[in-house]
């Protein structure tokens, strides 16, 4: 088990190193020269060279990359200012360390992603379980047809609709706010309920349909039949045997969806006017703020890769045969 985890973690490190190298190469070898942008109208070659030097762009790309990566762990002293660890460079646009900006923004996105995932896993898997249990019933058929509709729903459509109905008309929920976990945790939860709900809706149907069919598949498995032949009760067989078998594929599906979950969180924060990574990334791109773009990119990849390791570990927890690998 420990060996399994260590191997997964090492694999994650390799993947992250590859991602960082590739994105670094992409961003910093692009034809757009940040020096030219910040140089303004009275640009002389001397000015450009100075800016290049200040940004560290006069060194060979591998050296730049090495210093950049080392800075993440040790911090850096840059010509334009100090950058404590974890240093992702200084933002071109406002001269602040990228990490300072990132750390003020990622809690919103992360909270949305985690909260939304918790909601859609509960609701989606729950609906699927009820459908499988009452297979062929009115509920099952209704859930199937509603699922079909749910699939074609978009966040930017139901978001405003939900705000209009649940906030403006019924006044049931808060309109959504950036969470401040350290000072106002209750308010943070209240401000996240509606965005998380809205974000989760697009995932419900897929998870309920998958759960339903996985459960029906599992209930027909021979080892589940053995459990019934032992005289175990219907609920026991359903949850202990069939659900146990269905959990692996559900978790795998969730792992594949991690990217979409982050994507969904970013669309949701835009819909609700929240200040998360999505807005930050858009701003970074429009201002050609390469260090900030790089930082958002790396941070998101790190989050997804780490969540994947957690998912792999939970997979080994669910299926004892995986522990052999």
């Amino acid at each position: 088990m420990l060996r399994f985890l260590v191997r997964r973690l090492l694999g994650a490190v390799v993947i992250l190193a590859l991602i960082s190298a590739l994105t670094y190469l992409l961003f910093f070898t692009l034809p757009s020269d940040p020096a030219l942008l910040s140089c303004g109208k009275n640009c002389t070659p001397a000015n450009v060279a100075l800016i290049h030097h200040n940004l560290g762009l006069d060194k060979p790309v591998p050296v730049q990359y090495g210093e950049y990566m080392a800075g993440i762990f040790t911090g850096r002293r840059l010509p334009l200012g100090n950058c404590p660890a974890p240093c992702f460079g200084l933002s071109f646009a406002n001269d602040a360390p990228v990490w300072t900006i990132l750390s003020s923004r990622y809690p919103t996105t992360l909270s949305l992603a985690v909260g939304g995932a918790a909601v859609f896993l509960t609701v989606g898997v729950g609906l699927g379980l009820v459908s499988a249990w009452t297979r062929g019933s009115l509920f099952d058929r209704l859930a199937s047809s509603v699922s079909l509709m749910g699939q074609s729903v978009q966040i930017y459509f139901i978001g405003p609709l939900a705000i209009y109905l649940l906030v403006d008309r019924l006044r049931w929920l808060d309109p959504g706010a950036d969470p401040d976990w350290s000072h106002d945790p209750a308010g943070a939860v209240g401000g996240l309920v509606l965005p998380c709900l809205v974000m989760s809706v697009i995932f419900w149907s897929n998870y309920s349909r998958q759960t339903r069919s996985l459960m029906i598949e599992q209930l027909a498995e021979e080892h589940v039949r053995t459990a019934r032949a032992k005289g175990m009760g219907r609920g026991y067989v359903f949850f202990r045997y069939a659900l146990r078998g269905a959990m692996g594929p559900i978790v795998t599906l969730f792992g594949i969806d991690l990217g979409s979950v982050f994507g969904g969180a970013i669309i949701t924060e835009t819909t609700f006017g929240l200040h998360g990574l999505g807005q930050l990334a858009v701003a970074a791109v429009t201002q050609t703020d390469l260090p900030l773009e790089m930082g958002v990119m790396l941070f998101s990849s790190c989050a997804i890769v780490l969540f994947n390791v957690v998912i792999d570990a939970s997979y080994a927890f669910i299926d004892p045969r995986v522990r052999l690998l």
């Binding site: 080892h223 039949r225 053995t226 032949a229 005289g231 146990r244 004892p320 045969r321």
Partner: peptide
């Protein structure tokens, strides 16, 4: 009724299945 059968299965009457690789739960 289902519950009456459940009390008999594995108790008064039981079955040895053919393919023990698939008939035992891997979990």
């Amino acid at each position: 009724p289902r519950r009456a059968l459940e009390r008999l299965r594995g108790n008064t009457m039981s079955m040895i299945f053919q393919d023990s690789l698939t008939a035992l739960s891997p979990y």
